[in-house]
Design a protein around this nucleic acid. Structure first.
Length: 951
RNA sequence: GCGAGUAUGGGGGAAUUGGUAGACCCAGCGGACUUAAAAUCCGCCGCUCAAUGCGUAUCGGUUCGACUCCGAUUACUCGCACCA
C-alpha cells in the first residue's frame, strides 16, 4: 500500500481540529514556551510559497518543544486594518470589512492545508472591536502619561502637574496646551510626510526613497496638526536594551542606525542687533574657531526675523521653493547645492567676529535645532556649500589639504584655535565643551535621529483615535466608553473640505455634541501589542489578565521577515517598555530571540516583443509567410537576444538587438523548463492580447503565425528567459502552497521548504527538486511495511541499527536547536537510506524515528504512530534521548596526509595512543612508499582526527 | 557615500567551528527489472594534459594543516542615506 497523503493528511487535520490538540493552557505545571510568527496582513492575493517558510520553521520548533515537555503557545491572527482593503473599497464601494473577511477566510483555508499546530481559539484580528478596544485603551494610557527624565520612565501625568509653575493659574486651554508638550500621545504642529495621492500622512519608515512604501506615490513635507507618539523619550532605552536580546546583528544594526544616537554639544550664537540667539547642535565643538557661517533650515522659525529688507524677496522665494520640493526631488538632487544669504549676522562667541547667516535645505528642520554652525574646513557638506557660494574656509585641524576637500577625520592637532591650539581632536572636544559650559554658551547634549512617530492617518480603515474636542481642547474618552466604534460612511474618501473620511459619518458626535478626532491610527498600532492579546484573547476586562501575562511572559522565539526591522519591531519594543513602566507587564522586551526568514523569490519567464511593425517586413520573405501590409508584431525566443549578436549574423533578420525590444512576463504555467506553450498562452487572458493574426513567434528554426509553423521542424521550441525576481501576482510568477499540497502533500511541502537551504537565506523557488523529498517520504513509509502490509518486528535491533537511530537523534536535536532545518531533512534522508540498507523494521528503531520526524512531517508521523498501536496523538509523545554508548566506534579510519594533503586512509583502533598511532603509521607500507626512503621532518597526530606527515 | 550580509560542482546546498572539501537532494549519464511505461533497484557524476597535478570569488599572510583565522580587492543582495 503506497502512502496516500491526501487521505492521511485530511484525516489528521480533522482529528487535530476536533480534539483541539494544540490548545495551550494558561495554567500548567509544564514549563512554558511562546513561539510567535509575525502577524500577516491578509491581502487579496493570498499566500504564495514564500509566506509559509517562517510559519513552517516556527511550527517545527513549536511541535519539537511540545515533544520535549513544554506547554507551548503558538498562535496566529491577522493584522487586518490597512490600506489595500481601503483602496479596494474606494474603487468598488465595498466595505473594507467585507473584503477583509473574505481575504482572511482564504488565508485560513490555505494555512489549514499545511498542517500548522496553531491554537486557533486564540485567533485575534486587529479590526475587531473587542481587539481594538484595547488598542484604544493603550492609547489613552499613553495620553495620560509623561516621561519623567528623573525616574527614567513613564508616569501618570498627575505626577507632572505639581512640578509645573503657576499651572493652576492658567486657563483650561493653556493647561491643555502645556500638558500636550509632555504627554506620550500628543497633538502638535509637526512637519509631516504628506502623500497627496493616498490622502494621508505617513511615518518616516513608511517612506522609502522619497515615495510611499505602499503604492510608490510622491511625498511632500507639510506642516500639520497631528497626533504623535513620543517614542523619542525611549530612544536611549531602545538602544541600550538591544544588547540584552538575541536578535540578528543586521536587525540590531538597522535599529541602531535608525535611532542614530550622536553625542555633541549645543551652542548659542547671538544674533547681531537683536536679543535672539540661534542655537546649533554640533558633534565637533573643537572646530568652533573654524566656523565661517551659520546655516538654517528653510523652515527655521527665526528665518523671517533675521532676514534683512534687501534680502527679503530672495529669501521668501527660496523658502517657497524649498517647501514645494517633494522629498523625492530633494533627495534625488542631493548634489545640487541650493541656499540663500539672509542678510543677517551672528556674533562668534569667542572671536566676536560677525558671521553671516545663510539658509540651505541641506539642513534638516527636524534634526537637532534645525541650524548648524558651518565649518567648511572639516565637514564635507559645509565645504561644498562654501565652495559653491564662495564663503571662507578656515583650517583648524592640521592634516588635510583644504584646496581639494574638507578634512573630516577626527585626527590631528588643532591650529588657529586660540585656547585649543596644539590639542588632539579628542582632547579639544572635551576642553571645548568644558569652556562652552563654563561660559554658559551651551552644554553637552545627545541627539537622536529617531523622530516621534506620527500616529494619525487621514484614512478610514483603522482604529478611531478615542478623542473628542471640547472648545478646541482634545480630551480622551472614559475607559468604560470603549470601544469607540468605527462609524459607517457613505464614501471612503476625504470630504470636499479635505477632512478625513470619518468626517462623513453622520451624527457621529461624543455625547451628541462634541466632535470626535477624524484621523485613525496607523497600521502598526494594532501590531504593537498583539503578542500580549494571544495570552488571553477573550478577556473583556483587560488586554490580558495579570496571571496570563505572568505565566507566558515574553515571546521566546519570534520568526518573521526582515522588512519590519525599523517599523514594527521598534514600535512593539516601545509599547512593551511603556507598559512595563506602568507596571502592566513584567518584562522590558517583547521577544527574547528573533529570526528573520529569507525571502523566497520567484522565477519569472520573459519573452521579448518588438512592437515596431516595420521591423518585421523582412521575415515573411525569409520564411515564405503570407504578407501583411501593416507588418507584424514579433515575439522572439530568448536565444535571439540573450547573447550579443555575432558579426556574421548582423543583417540576418533572425537576429535583433535588445534596444528595439521590450520584455513581458509570461504566466509561468504556460512554460515548461522555459519552453513556451504558444497555443495555451494565446488562449489565456494575457495571451489574447497577442492576437494570432498579427503576431509572429520567432523560434530558433522558424516562426509561428496563425497557429501554423513555418521553418525547421526540429527547432520549433520557443524559449522564454527565466529571471529571479520578487514573487508577485503582477509578475505572473507566483507558486501557491495549495498547488504543491495538492500534488505532493503538506508534509512534502514542509520538508521541501526546509530542505531548500538555510532559513535566513533568500533563495529562488524551484519546484523541480521536490521529487527527492517526495521519494524520501515514500521510502520512509516502506520501512514500516512489507508487501503492502504494515509490519514491524519486535526483534532486538542490531548495533548498526541503533547507531543509525541514535546518531540521527543527536543530529536532529542539534539542528533544531540551532534552527538548521535544512540539514535535519538531509539527516532524515541519510537515516532512512541506512535503515533501508539494513532492512530494518524493528519497532525499537521505527517508533522513535516517527517521533523525531513528527515536527517536520506531522501527518505522516501521526499515521505511523497510529499504526504502531497508539491511541493518542503523537503530539505529546516523548522526544527520545540519544545514547552516546551506541555511537562509540572502536576503530577510526585515519586520513594520512603529507604536508596537509590527504593521500590515503588507515584504519586503526581508537584505543591506540598518539605515539602508538605514529609508530603504526611509520611502519605501514604505504607511508614508506610515499616517503620514498626520506625521513619525515615531523609527524602530527590528532587523536580521532588526522595523521599529518611533514616532509 | 555609510552599514550589514553573501560568494563552494550543471543547480539547491553540506563540512561536528583549524583536521578526509563537495554529505544529502535535483538534473545528467550507464545498467537491471518490464512486451512497454511508471515505480523500484544498482553504478558513475568538481576540473584537467590523468600525476605524489589543480580546485571553496581574487591576491597575499599566519599554520604541520585554511572553505574556516588575519589583511587587501572584486561582484552581487539588502538596509540607511545631506542626521551637523
Amino acid at each position: 500500500m503506497e502512502y496516500n497523503f491526501r487521505e492521511v493528511e485530511k484525516k489528521w487535520q480533522h482529528y487535530w481540529a476536533e480534539k483541539k490538540t494544540f490548545k495551550a493552557e494558561n495554567k500548567s505545571d509544564k514549563p512554558k514556551y511562546y513561539v510567535l510568527d509575525m502577524f500577516p496582513y491578509p491581502s487579496g492575493a493570498g499566500l504564495h510559497v514564500g509566506h509559509p517558510l517562517g510559519y513552517i520553521a516556527s511550527d517545527i520548533f513549536a511541535r519539537y518543544k511540545r515533544l520535549k515537555g513544554f506547554n507551548v503557545l503558538h498562535p496566529m491572527g491577522y493584522d487586518s486594518f490597512g490600506l489595500p482593503a481601503e483602496q479596494y473599497a474606494i474603487q468598488t464601494g465595498q466595505h473594507p470589512e467585507i473584503t477583509t473577511k473574505t481575504n482572511i477566510a482564504r488565508y485560513r483555508e490555505q494555512l489549514d492545508k499545511i498542517g500548522f499546530s496553531f491554537d486557533w481559539d486564540r485567533e485575534v484580528r486587529t479590526s475587531n472591536p473587542d481587539y481594538y478596544k484595547w488598542t484604544q485603551w493603550i492609547f489613552i494610557q499613553l495620553f495620560n502619561s509623561w516621561y519623567n527624565p528623573k525616574t527614567n520612565k513613564a508616569e501618570n501625568i498627575a505626577t507632572l502637574i505639581p512640578t509645573l509653575k503657576n499651572f493652576s493659574s492658567l486657563s483650561e486651554k493653556e493647561q491643555s496646551d502645556l500638558l500636550l508638550e509632555y504627554r506620550l500621545a500628543y497633538l502638535s504642529d509637526t512637519i509631516v510626510n504628506w502623500c497627496p495621492q493616498l490622502g494621508t500622512v505617513l511615518a518616516n519608515e513608511e517612506v522609502k526613497e522619497g515615495v510611499s512604501e505602499r503604492g510608490g506615490y510622491p511625498v511632500e513635507r507639510k506642516l500639520m496638526k497631528q497626533w504623535s507618539l513620543r517614542i523619542t523619550a525611549y530612544a536611549d532605552r531602545l538602544l541600550t536594551d538591544l544588547e540584552g536580546i538575541d536578535w540578528t546583528d543586521s536587525i540590531k544594526e538597522a535599529q541602531r542606525n535608525w535611532i542614530g544616537k550622536s553625542e555633541g554639544t549645543s551652542l548659542k550664537f547671538k544674533i547681531q542687533e537683536s536679543d535672539d540667539t540661534i542655537e546649533v547642535f554640533t558633534t565637533r565643538p573643537d572646530t568652533i574657531f573654524g566656523v565661517s557661517f551659520v546655516t538654517l533650515a528653510p523652515e527655521h522659525e527665526l528665518v523671517e526675523k533675521i532676514t534683512t529688507a534687501e534680502q527679503k524677496k530672495t529669501v521668501e522665494e527660496y523658502v517657497t521653493f524649498a517647501k514645494n520640493r517633494s522629498e523625492r526631488d530633494r533627495m534625488s538632487d542631493v548634489k545640487k547645492i541650493t541656499g540663500v544669504f539672509t542678510g543677517g549676522y551672528v556674533m562668534h562667541p569667542f572671536t566676536r567676529k560677525q558671521i553671516p547667516i545663510w539658509i540651505g535645505d541641506y539642513v534638516l528642520a527636524g534634526y537637532g535645532t534645525g541650524a548648524v554652525m558651518a565649518v567648511p574646513g572639516h565637514d564635507t557638506r559645509d565645504y561644498a556649500f562654501a565652495k559653491h557660494f564662495g564663503l571662507d574656509i578656515i583650517e583648524v585641524v592640521a592634516g588635510g589639504d583644504l584646496s581639494k576637500e574638507s578634512y573630516d577625520a577626527k585626527e590631528g592637532k588643532l591650529i588657529h584655535s586660540d585656547f585649543l591650539n596644539g590639542l588632539d581632536v579628542k582632547d579639544a572636544i572635551k576642553k571645548a565643551i568644558a569652556v562652552i559650559e563654563e561660559k554658559g554658551l551651551g552644554k553637552g547634549k545627545t541627539n537622536f535621529r529617531l523622530r516621534d512617530a506620527i500616529f494619525g492617518r487621514q484614512r478610514y480603515w483603522g482604529e478611531p483615535i478615542p478623542v473628542y474636542y471640547e472648545n478646541g481642547i482634545p480630551k480622551v474618552l472614559n475607559e468604560n466608553e470603549l470601544p469607540l466604534l468605527l462609524p459607517d460612511v457613505d464614501k471612503y474618501l476625504p470630504t470636499e473640505t479635505g477632512e478625513p473620511p470619518l468626517a462623513r459619518a453622520s451624527n457621529w458626535k461624543y455625547k451628541g455634541q462634541f466632535e470626535y478626532e477624524y484621523s485613525t491610527m496607523p497600521g502598526w498600532a494594532g501590531s504593537s501589542w498583539y503578542f500580549l492579546r494571544y495570552m488571553d484573547a477573550h478577556n473583556e476586562n483587560a488586554f490580558a489578565s495579570k496571571e496570563a501575562i505572568n505565566y507566558w511572559q515574553n515571546v521566546d522565539l519570534y520568526i518573521g521577515g526582515a522588512e519590519h526591522s525599523t517599523g514594527h519591531l521598534l514600535y512593539v519594543r516601545f509599547w512593551t517598555k511603556f507598559l512595563n513602566d506602568l507596571g502592566l507587564v513584567p518584562f522590558i522586551e517583547p521577544a527574547k530571540k528573533l529570526i528573520n526568514q529569507g525571502m523566497i523569490q520567484g522565477v519569472s519567464e520573459k519573452i521579448f516583443v518588438d512592437e515596431h511593425k516595420h521591423n518585421s517586413f523582412m521575415i515573411p520573405d525569409y520564411y515564405n509567410l503570407p504578407h501583411s501590409t501593416e507588418g507584424y508584431r514579433v515575439c522572439y525566443s530568448s536565444s535571439f537576444v540573450s547573447e550579443n549578436i555575432k558579426k556574421e549574423n548582423i543583417g540576418d533578420p533572425k537576429y535583433v538587438t535588445l534596444e528595439n525590444l521590450y520584455e513581458i512576463n509570461i504566466p509561468i504555467e504556460f512554460t515548461d523548463k522555459s519552453n513556451l506553450n504558444i497555443d495555451e498562452f494565446l488562449k489565456s487572458s494575457q495571451g489574447r492580447d497577442f492576437k494570432e493574426h498579427d503576431t509572429i513567434f520567432r523560434t530558433d528554426g522558424g516562426c509561428f503565425l496563425n497557429g501554423v509553423y513555418y521553418g525547421d521542424e526540429t527547432k520549433k521550441d520557443f524559449y522564454t528567459k527565466p529571471e529571479v525576481e520578487k514573487m508577485s501576482k503582477s509578475k505572473w510568477n507566483v507558486v501557491t502552497p495549495d498547488l504543491i499540497v495538492e500534488q505532493y502533500g503538506a508534509d512534502c511541502l514542509r520538508l521541501y521548504e526546509m530542505f531548500l537551504g538555510p532559513l535566513e537565506q533568500s533563495k529562488p523557488w524551484s519546484t523541480s527538486g521536490i521529487s527527492g523529498v517526495s521519494n524520501f517520504m515514500r521510502k520512509m513509509w516502506r520501512l514500516y511495511h512489507k508487501e503492502d502490509m504494515f509490519t514491524v518486528s519486535m526483534e532486538v535491533p542490531s548495533k548498526e541499527e541503533l547507531k543509525t537511530l541514535h546518531k540521527t537523534i543527536k543530529k536532529i536535536v542539534h539542528d533544531i536547536e540551532n534552527f538548521s532545518f535544512n540539514t535535519s531533512v538531509s539527516n532524515f534522508m541519510i537515516c532512512v537510506n541506512e535503515l533501508t540498507e539494513q532492512k530494518c523494521n524493528k519497532r525499537e528503531i521505527l517508533e522513535p524515528l516517527a517521533i523525531i520526524i513528527a515536527p517536520y512531517a506531522p501527518h505522516l508521523a501521526e499515521e505511523l504512530w497510529f499504526k504502531l498501536g497508539h491511541a493518542e496523538s503523537i503530539t505529546y509523545a516523548q522526544f527520545p534521548l540519544h545514547n552516546e554508548e551506541y555511537l562509540v566506534d572502536d576503530a577510526f579510519a585515519y586520513p594520512v596526509s603529507f604536508n596537509g594533503k590527504t593521500r590515503f586512509k588507515m584504519e586503526l583502533p581508537l584505543t591506540l595512543g598518539v605515539k602508538e598511532i605514529e609508530n603504526a603509521a611509520m611502519d605501514s607500507e604505504e607511508v614508506k612508499k610515499f616517503l620514498e626512503g626520506k625521513a619525515p621532518k615531523k609527524i602530527i597526530v590528532v587523536h580521532n582526527k588526522i595523521i599529518n606527515i611533514v616532509v
